[in-house]
Each structure stands twice: as structure tokens, then as C-alpha cells.
Computed example of a mutant assay.
Amino acid sequence: MRVLVTGATGFVGRRLVPALLDAGHDVVALVRDASRYTGPEEVEIVEGDLLDSATLAPAMDGVEAAYYLVHSMRSGGDFESRDRLAARSFVEAADAAGVQRVVYLGGLGEERDRLSPHLRSRREVEHLLASGSFELTTLRAAIIVGAGSASFDMVQQLAKRLPVMVTPQWVETKCQPIAIDDVVAYLVGVLDHPETAGETYEIGGPDVLTYHEMLQRVGAHLGHSPRIVPVPVLTPRLSSYWIGLVTDVDTDVARPLIEGLKNPVVVTDDRIRDIVSVDETSFDEAIERALHEESERTTVPIESKTEAP
């Protein structure tokens, strides 16, 4: 099957592309700058911008299925209007090209729980994609655990750097994290099951934890467990400033992440497990994999340390 991946250079997309190739699909990667793409050689690279529907036709040519993996990750400005415009441009181009299926990775969370602005925007994108002529499969996930995940990076850095942590009340919110490998397995798997077309599924790992528990588990893997003291007075804005001070996470990224942490994100409908077979990864195993991958990325080869004579 000829498959288009938007967001091919992102945290999920760069792992999804080789998995689709391994599954026997022909993959087209939509990127804004082809010179910066470092994916597999077998991938067809097409430049385009989701904010400009006129640039999307070449990427959609002959495509049978497409993955929509694009979201604004910063606060402020008009991120909602950008998300809206990108989704509408994608729908227009996909319908014009006769794309048959689209797979969208959205976020868990019940609308009755007053979703954060970014989770609301993800849900709006989901509704906009559903307006297309193609059949939409939506997978909703909570925190995705892996090297390069903004949410997991924030948790990891907090657990690593602070022996004592004064935190907002959101640390007691329940979450069902999922390993990046499992997310990719579900994303690839739904294409092999025509019955998933037009359906929405919730995906999660085997562990349901509070953020408090997640911080302590991550801390244990790093060699210590932070002491956590929840207080009710830290607003999302203050919390984002605090995270910006003690971690490398940009304040503009931290704020939308924190705003989303007030919403419980737990799977309530696990039908997908009966359709797509995935060997679920425990939270602890997902942590180990993420830390190992990060260690491999940051290790400097011995040869590179040798100075020239």
C-alpha cells in the first residue's frame, strides 16, 4: 500500500516510517525541508506545508492511506487556528486525491472533564478530519514513553534533578502511559484490519499510575526517588515557569503539557486489543528502553575524542 506520513520527522513519525517499510508498505514522507530529512533511503520524500493546501497535491499523488501526526506543541499565539488550518488543508488535499483511509493519533481525555486548550484542539482536529470523504481511524493515547517525547522528557528531568519537589495537585491525576513501540505497533496494525476504518480507539499500556507514581518510578530507574510535596497554589503558568527553571523544557512547551495533566487520561474502551495484537510494554520496561536510547544518543565515540596531532 502507498502510505503518506505527515509529521515524519517528529517523535512518532520518525519511528513509524521504518515500521511501515518493514510491514511492506511504500512510504511517502511529507516534510517542509527535504535537505534535513535523515530517514531510510527507501522513503519517497516530498516537500510541502500543511498550512498551504496548494503544496500538498504532489505528496498525495497515488496515496491510498495517510497518517496525520501533526500538532502544535507551544503555548501562546494562535496555535488553535494553525491546527485548524492544517487539518482543513489536509482534508481538502486528501479528498481531491481520493485518499481512502487516514489514521490520526490524538489524545485521551473525556470532553466532560473540561479539556485543556491543547487537548481541545486535538479533539477539534479529530472532528475536522472526520469531515473528509476518507475513512478515519483515530487512536487516542496519553503520555507516550520514549526518548524524545516532550512529556516523558519533562517527567524524567524532574525526577533526575530534584531530590525534593513542590508540585501542583496534578501529580495525583491518573494516567495510562504507553511505550512508543506499542503506539507504532497499533498505528501500523490498524492498516491490516479494514474493520478499524471509521472507528475511534483508546490505546494505553498495562499500567495505570498517578504522575506522582510515575515520577517516583522514573527516579528509581535513575538511582533515586524524589520526595514529592503537592501544593494547591501552583497555577499552570507558575508551574511552567518552575519547570523552565529546573529542566531544559521550554516554558512555552511546558505550559500546554502541564495544562493537560489536570485531565485524567485512562483507557475506558480497550476494544483495540481484540483487533490488533500488541505485546504490551510495562511502564518500567518503557523507561529502561527510553533511557537506554538516550544514553546511546549522547555517548561520544572514543575515536572522536582523539585530538589530531
Rank of each mutant, 00 (worst) to 15 (best):
H71P: 03
S72L: 12
R74H: 14
R74D: 06
G76I: 04
G77N: 04
L85D: 05
F90L: 01
F90T: 00
V91E: 00
A93I: 05
A93Q: 08
A96H: 03
A97H: 07
V103R: 08
L105V: 00
G106R: 09
G107Y: 01
L108R: 09
E110V: 05
E111N: 12
R112Q: 10
D113N: 12
R114Q: 12
L115D: 05
S116C: 10
P117W: 04
H118R: 04
R120Y: 04
R120H: 06
R120D: 04
S121N: 07
R123Q: 08
E124C: 05
E124A: 13
A130F: 00
A130M: 00
G132D: 04
S133H: 07
S133M: 02
E135R: 10
E135S: 07
L136Y: 03
T137W: 13
T138S: 11
R140H: 14
A141T: 07
I143V: 11
V145A: 05
G146P: 07
G146W: 01
S149C: 01
A150D: 12
A150M: 03
F152M: 01
F152Q: 06
V155S: 13
Q156N: 10
L158W: 15
L162G: 12
M165A: 08
V166L: 15
P168G: 11
P168L: 09
I178A: 01
A179F: 06
D181C: 02
D181G: 03
D181Q: 05
D182F: 07
D182R: 13
V183D: 01
A185I: 07
Y186K: 12
V188P: 00
G189F: 02
V190K: 10
L191P: 00
L191D: 03
E195S: 12
T196Q: 05
T196Y: 03
A197H: 15
A197E: 08
A197G: 07
G198C: 03
E199Y: 12
E199K: 13
T200P: 07
I203P: 02
G204P: 07
G204K: 10
P206N: 09
P206G: 11
V208S: 14
V208T: 14
V208H: 14
V208D: 13
T210W: 13
Y211V: 00
L215K: 11
Q216A: 06
R217K: 15
